[in-house]
Design a binder for these strands. Structure first.
Lengths: 125, 125
DNA sequence: TTTTGCAACTATAATTTTTATAGTAATTAA
DNA sequence: TTAATTACTATAAAAATTATAGTTGCAAAA
């Protein structure tokens, strides 16, 4: 560590959630819903429970591996719940928001609304 | 391209902004403010203009390279403005929100507020 | 007066995240 | 009989992020 490059912030100043430290509340939120796809997943789960392949259809440009990993991460953070209905293939798996995940709905909606307003203002080009 | 893995979404269904295509409005917003650090930068610029090193002090865990790149990206997307005051070192450079960037303030504030409420509810551990 | 520090970066390389592509199991539809 | 479906996982490549060090001129400290 070189104080020339690092302004140390003591652990006490940092915010903590699920074992990770964040320098501020905005970064904590982004640690949980940041990344390219998490909010998109949550956005599609606002209205209804969706199966894995239904999510994939809503998000045609995400890869399977990334979708899998992001779903796992959202589940670990307690925002969504995975429910399996069959033990043998073809599997039926459903994803839904948890109560904790539902506390994000207004925020996710605001995120979607801002994107919408940008498209409306700048004409989708 | 293999239709087994890709459900093609036609270009017409996609949303466009600054040459990039997004599958939905939530992903458009996240394309602009997503990533680990962009909202943190914007959050700190809500109240006042900041110099490069002042931002660094507010965000002690970001690396210089990433901070530089993110500032450039935010500038390219028209959310912040970079203003140089001197021509010779030591340079004085200030970053501020543009009018377009200011349209994000309520959203950034909501992001920060949600993080805040998580810390309050789960006791910063 | 020589050294040290400062501001706002850039360069290079390593690590982590995301993408691309293909493969799996058991069942049903054509 | 063959192909399609579901919910993934495996492997490798590409892109993003981190770690560390280096740059330029000026000003203050030793």
């Amino acid at each position: 560590m070189d104080s020339r490059y690092y302004m140390e912030k003591t652990e006490q100043n940092m915010l903590h959630f699920r074992g990770k430290a964040y320098p501020c509340c905005a970064s904590l939120t982004m640690g949980i819903i940041g990344g390219k796809w998490k909010t998109v997943i949550l956005y599609h789960l606002i209205e209804k429970t969706l199966r894995y392949n239904e999510l994939r259809k809503e998000m045609p440009t995400v890869t399977e591996r990334t979708l899998s990993l992001q779903l796992k991460s959202l589940e670990e953070d307690g925002l969504i719940k995975r429910k399996v209905y069959t033990s043998k293939p073809p599997l039926k798996v459903e994803y839904r928001l948890t109560d904790f995940g539902k506390t994000l709905i207004p925020l996710i909606q605001s995120i979607a609304d801002w994107g919408d307003s940008v498209v409306k203002t700048y004409g989708n080009k």
